[in-house]
Simulated scan of single mutants.
Amino acid sequence: MRLLINIIRYYTACAATWGSWTTCTLEGTRIRTRQCSTEIESQPGDCFIDCFAWSTWTACDTSPIVADQRQTRVRQCANGAETAEQACHSSTTVGTTSDGWYRAGNGYEYIFMANLKDHVGAIEFCNALDERSILASVGVRDGTLVSETTTSALGIPANVWRYHVGATDIFEEDTWVFEDGVVLRTSQIDWGTSGSNVQQPNGGTNQGCMNFFSPASVATIPGASDTACSDETPFMCERVAL
């Protein structure tokens, strides 16, 4: 009984509210603190991140492309660093491809679809377009790329203010799983603001899928937004360029 009393006293001795979690380290850990009467208490925690975002691809020699040349990228995961590689593209020119996709500077191609789909429908549509195609993921996490892939080159109308992209937190609130397998916490994502000056995300467990506020619209500040997975909106597909 005395042991139980001591345990209860220990966990109720400080009534102060815990502060915000720190940014996750590359080892996938974080801490938060609170000020108690005589000392500052700290609490460690896991980030539930399998892998951080990929780095950008290494540069290719484009004058001309060297035969069999390859480029690489890396990401830090819970079990160590992962490396991916691919052949350098025969053409690295940014612009529209022959089949209507927009080739961005990161080695991926994008296409905007104006037809309305819910989140699952958008995933299925992108997957059916091409064996390399997924609902846009890499381009959503790269601030520089976001600007590039939301230009008029993609043909996004000014009246389209949001569209589906490939991430959801339906499995665990505030842990966003992207279509390419990357997992990020809410604090690691650049969120947008709606025209009524509402900072995203703001839907809690009722809005478990990700939209993106379009820079083509004057109604929003560009960035990610949470939305109900059943909402039917336009969407953007993404594929690795060849």
Rank of each mutant, 00 (worst) to 15 (best):
R2G: 07
R2I: 11
R9F: 13
Y10Q: 04
Y11L: 09
A13S: 14
C14M: 04
A15Y: 06
W18I: 02
W21D: 10
T22E: 15
C24M: 09
R32Y: 00
Q35V: 11
Q43F: 06
G45D: 13
D46T: 06
F48C: 08
T56R: 15
C60H: 06
P64A: 09
I65A: 12
V66W: 11
A67P: 11
V74E: 14
V74N: 13
R75G: 02
Q76L: 08
Q76G: 07
C77G: 07
C77I: 05
A78P: 00
A87W: 00
T92R: 04
V94G: 01
V94Y: 04
G95K: 00
T97Y: 02
G100C: 05
Y102I: 01
R103V: 00
G105F: 11
G105M: 08
G105P: 05
N106L: 03
Y110I: 06
I111D: 03
N115L: 13
H119N: 03
I123D: 09
I123T: 10
F125Y: 15
L129E: 14
E131H: 06
I134W: 01
L135G: 04
A136G: 09
A136W: 00
G139I: 05
V140Q: 12
R141I: 09
D142K: 11
D142T: 06
V146Y: 09
S152G: 12
I156W: 05
A158P: 01
A158V: 13
N159M: 08
Y163D: 10
A167N: 03
A167I: 02
T168G: 01
I170S: 14
E172N: 10
T175K: 07
G181Q: 05
V183A: 00
T186N: 12
S187C: 07
Q188N: 12
I189Y: 00
G192Q: 02
S194M: 06
S194Q: 08
G195R: 02
V198C: 08
P201A: 05
P201G: 07
N206H: 01
G208M: 12
C209P: 05
M210Y: 10
N211F: 15
V218C: 02
V218S: 13
A219F: 04
P222A: 07
P222N: 07
A224T: 11
S225A: 15
D226Y: 06
T227Q: 15
T227K: 03
C229V: 03
C229A: 11
S230W: 03
S230P: 03
D231V: 01
M236D: 10
E238I: 03
R239G: 09
